[in-house]
Amino acid sequence: MSLTVPADLLEKAQRGPVSDEEFIACIRDSLPFAWSVVAELAERLSTDGAPFADNQKEPPDEQARGQLLRLVGSDAMRGAVERYFNVRLAFQNCHRLALFDPAARSAYHEFVSPRAQLLNQSPELVNC
């Protein structure tokens, strides 16, 4: 299961739409490691002035890695996180999550290119 959904939020979703704020709270509470990575990158992006900030640290365990994969693997979660932080997400391999300033189109397209994916490969990442 991707998220731990509180009963009241599930009931609300069964009746109709839920707000991004409610969905973000569910993501943050369900995927604390993934949320901490995203929040740290968002902070770096806003303070460094670079076109993007990326995570190069491997998750501490498989549970943490799973959280990161679930976050980036869901279009709904990705979209909500992108709107919340006003960023564009990109992902390579098992843990290289990057947040881009929406205006940094060139840097984003370079990061998500086949060339960048190939250059980001290493033997230790084959089975991650």
Rank of each mutant, 00 (worst) to 15 (best):
T4R: 12
V5F: 11
V5W: 14
V5Y: 10
A7D: 11
L9V: 14
L10V: 10
E11L: 11
A13K: 04
A13Y: 09
Q14E: 13
S19E: 14
S19L: 05
S19G: 12
D20L: 02
F23V: 00
I24M: 01
I27V: 13
R28D: 03
S30W: 02
S30M: 08
L31V: 03
L31I: 04
P32D: 01
A34C: 07
W35A: 10
W35N: 02
W35E: 04
S36T: 07
S36P: 06
V38P: 02
A39L: 10
A39W: 08
E40W: 06
A42Y: 10
E43P: 03
T47R: 14
T47H: 09
G49L: 05
P51A: 06
F52T: 00
A53S: 13
A53L: 06
A53Y: 01
K57L: 12
K57N: 08
P59M: 07
P59H: 02
P59N: 02
P60H: 15
Q63K: 12
R65G: 12
G66Y: 14
G66H: 11
L69Q: 15
V72F: 00
S74Y: 03
S74D: 02
A76D: 07
M77A: 07
M77H: 07
M77T: 11
R78Y: 02
A80K: 03
R83H: 06
R83L: 11
Y84H: 15
N86R: 08
N86A: 13
L89K: 08
L89C: 10
A90G: 09
F91C: 06
N93M: 08
N93E: 11
N93Q: 12
C94T: 08
H95E: 03
L97I: 04
A98R: 05
F100Y: 05
D101R: 15
R105W: 05
R105G: 15
H109M: 14
E110K: 13
P114Q: 15
P114E: 14
A116I: 11
L119C: 13
N120K: 12
Q121L: 14
